[in-house]
């Protein structure tokens, strides 16, 4: 077992346990804390898998943005100091059974798949230039995506993969984000509270 594998198992255990704790914890802010650990662990996995840029974006957007937003949401909607909303025991039992079945389904799906078309050796983890390739692909350069034949494609002869660029999706996502932000600001604008008080 190499050092990288050791690190992978540590981070993977950490991520999985924190994710389970998010489910188990009843206090919503503590759940946010465990979610922080999960997200940080996922970012660590991304770093280990050579996706430095995605890992940093994960830290910046999730931890620096979404989580803060969630905690703000908790604080704006909490009646007491520490909120507890529990599900019933029966609901717990059913959901755990369904969850285990779903996990079994997913695990059996990837265990039964034939992964032999994968390259024997994963690429060098120090592939630092992929960030530049990412940038080029987002700017619309088709050459950033490597040419090759599609593995595992049906048919007699190997199919050439189409080389794609992501300028249009990138622009769509940007405009989408802008629209969403304006919409969220409109929805959450301050209004006089009406309706039932309990």
């Amino acid at each position: 077992m190499s050092f990288a594998d050791f690190l992978f198992w540590i981070v993977a255990l950490w991520t999985g346990l924190s994710a389970v704790m998010v489910v188990v914890t009843q206090n919503i802010v503590r759940a946010a804390l465990w979610l922080l650990f999960t997200l940080a662990g996922t970012a660590g996995l991304f770093f280990l898998l050579g996706a430095d840029f995605v890992g940093a974006v994960q830290l910046l957007v999730y931890v620096g943005g979404i989580l803060i937003l969630l905690v703000f949401g908790v604080m704006l909607t909490a009646q007491g100091p520490f909120v507890n909303l529990r599900a019933g025991a029966g609901e717990w039992a059913v959901s755990i059974v369904v969850g285990l079945l779903l996990l079994g389904l997913l695990v059996s799906a990837f265990l039964m798949t034939d992964w032999r078309f994968l390259p024997a050796q994963p690429p060098d983890p120090a592939h630092s230039r992929y960030v530049n390739d990412l940038g080029l692909a987002l700017l619309g350069s088709r050459d950033a995506t490597p040419p090759g034949t599609l593995p595992g494609a049906p048919g007699p002869e190997p199919a050439e993969r189409s080389r794609v660029a992501y300028l249009l999706p990138f622009e769509i996502v940007s405009v989408h984000l802008l629209v969403v932000l304006i919409g969220a600001a409109y929805l959450a604008r301050a209004r006089r509270r009406r309706g039932a008080r309990t």
């Binding site: 940080a40 840029f53 910046l60 931890v63 620096g64 803060i68 905690v71 630092s128």
Partner: peptide, 22 residues
């Protein structure tokens, strides 16, 4: 050594605020 060092630095500095809010 990381080729997105400046971006990495920004992103981890932004996680400090979560400790403060907690």
């Amino acid at each position: 050594p990381m080729n997105i060092a400046a971006f990495f630095m920004l992103s981890v500095l932004s996680t400090e605020v979560f400790g403060i809010i907690l």
